[in-house]
Design a protein around this nucleic acid. Structure first.
Lengths: 348, 348
DNA sequence: TGGGAGTATTGGAACGTTCCAAATACGGGG
DNA sequence: CCCCGTATTTGGAACGTTCCAATACTCCCA
């Protein structure tokens, strides 16, 4: 029961060749399904292969070919369901491409990010999908971009020349804010996210834009930053509520922040949707399952991931550089947390 | 701006050697931090490396060494936060091990699973952490197990001789059931999961065991199978509620099933915790955030993942076979969905 | 001044593929 | 029976490392 093939030299193309009575070159041709080899020999070789339990050695192959069939996916926070869905989308799109995804979770650490990117390069990754960690340096990206195909996902980095897959943050935040205004809210805050993130800037711009269009003032104190996590949202909301004159509605940076904020609101003895309207951003599965169900901006992480993967594959296959951008639609999904249904219920 | 290093031959150890005026062997020694090389040459070589922008080629290295620094993680459902947390735990434990994780999501398809396992073998993975898809064949596992280190995670497979990391499903389900019984419930159902999964069998055994110990009958109709997903839980609960004489409490196969079940209960006009008590299994982050908060059995997916990774590393490094088992503790976390707090509130 | 013990360094020979140019086989046609 | 074209097959020579045995170099002592 000791490990079999541990000491035994691995079965190689040469063993197959010998056993099938052909040359290694022929075996290689069979491997790549070349139409050059006669059907009969093909079968003989194939037979030898599974008789000997042959396992193709991709490492050796890509050594010769100078490029591996690996792509890296670098995710800044895999514990956020949004990014998990993104990862699944990428993985799904890669499925029949002949490429295999490496995954790494940087947990927002640029140091860790540099490590994993390096590791992926060392493994000969043909390309990278990168959802950059907070404070990622533009120079870092440019340096990378010069060396291998890379698509930036979700988080734009200003000044970076690289393909990009993001959602329409401006439009999404605008729509969410407008919705709250239509519901009659006048004092609205923006909660969560950190100022140096472009995503934050875009969403805040959407928020302020909509406010200004409705001739509503936005005090600086109505924009509260926090880490884009549940705890961050909780803390930010708590701060907001303990200051005097609380807003009647909040637009949250994303769903996890929103869920944290809802918790803080409840903890404060208030009711989400009645006392304070809440809207999120992302539409993760969780948004549907919290109570009250979260009104949020849907961006479909899964298909964003697929897009990113397809874009990367295109870039790998075409060989030369062509930057692409894809901005995914952001659709408002009205549920309960904004108070819309609540209002309706009262009206009837 | 065209891709630089695309056509240019990559910088190799030989280029470094020439530039630093040493032999390739010396460079190789520097690479592996050998104490054999003189400090001064070490620095010269290191200097040449980043002057030329050298990238280590792990593919070539592992070709020679006959084993790559890759481990595979095969996950049956990455969209379930439980497994996402498991994956993060694995990734975390691998972080300073010198091994890099490949990830694949099989989405419960044994066909897909066979594909990705094959691909990982082709890449020379040093070992595999496998959370097997539904209906995975024992023979398949045995075959694999004979070829490379592998640890089975979360889902046991009867008859498989392989290292194992699972949670204490029997004890967990027992505790959950006992808790409901202590709260006064007599008519309790078990909801979700599919009968041919060992995890299901274990949890049901815990459930029935606790019931029998309390001299309570368990009708076959009180054990409802379903896919271990939110929708599965929803459907199963709906079926259960539409039959006459509904139970006053349900033990759910896992958290996502429980959340689905809670949705069905609410949809049926009943209140979770008051009309029907619900307890889950896993204690994913979501459990805390649904409303009412889910009483559940905590198994700590993250640390289970870490364990699995450590076990795999041990197995890889030691060389010969030593099967290990780890059964993670299952702790009941009482929140609101079981009605305990509700009851208390009434009492006071 | 020769030798021995370290200490540093080095030149092949692998590792398992792919790629290329070249060789071979086979079938007719002249 | 030879030649030619088409269909198959084939032997190196890479690819970028690691490993091993062997060589240089230093220094010190007899």
């Amino acid at each position: 029961m000791a490990r079999a093939g541990r000491k035994t030299r691995a079965v190689t193309i040469l063993d197959i060749a010998k056993s099938a009575g052909v040359s290694k070159s022929t075996v290689s041709l069979v491997l790549k399904r070349s139409p050059l080899v006669r059907e009969e020999t093909r079968q003989r070789v194939a037979g030898a292969m599974d008789a000997l339990g042959y396992v193709y050695n991709r490492g050796a192959a890509s050594l010769r070919r100078a490029r591996a069939d690996i792509v890296g996916m670098v995710i800044n926070d895999l514990s956020n369901p949004f990014f998990a869905e993104l990862a699944i989308g990428i993985e799904r799109a890669l499925q029949n491409s002949g490429f295999v995804p490496f995954i790494a979770n940087t947990a927002e650490s640029v140091v860790r990010q540099a490590e994993v990117v390096r590791s992926m390069r060392e493994h000969g990754a043909a390309g990278l999908i990168l959802s950059p960690a907070l404070d990622t340096d533009v120079a870092e990206i440019s340096r990378l971009e010069a060396r291998l195909p890379i698509v930036l996902a979700i988080r734009r980095i200003i000044g970076a020349r690289a393909s990009l897959v993001v959602s329409d943050n401006l439009a999404g935040a605008t729509r969410a804010t407008e919705h709250l205004i239509e519901l009659g809210h006048r004092d609205i805050a923006f909660v969560g996210g950190v100022g140096r993130m472009v995503v934050f800037q875009d969403r805040v711009a959407g928020f302020t834009g909509a406010m200004e269009k409705a001739r509503l003032a936005v005090e600086p104190a109505r924009i509260i930053e926090s880490m884009p996590t549940k705890d961050g949202g909780f803390d930010a909301m708590k701060r907001l509520l303990s200051s005097e004159g609380r807003p009647t509605a909040v637009v949250c940076f994303n769903d996890v922040v929103a869920i944290g904020a809802m918790l803080a609101i409840a903890r404060h003895g208030l009711t989400v949707g009645r006392d304070v309207a809440v809207v999120g951003f992302d539409d993760t599965a969780e948004a549907r399952h919290v109570s009250p169900a979260l009104t949020t901006v849907s961006v479909d992480a899964g298909s964003l991931g697929e897009r990113a993967a397809q874009m990367l594959l295109r870039q790998i296959n075409e060989g030369e550089r062509r930057l692409e951008n894809y901005v995914g639609e952001a659709r408002l999904v009205v549920r309960e947390s904004c108070g819309a249904t609540f209002k309706r219920r009262i009206a009837s």
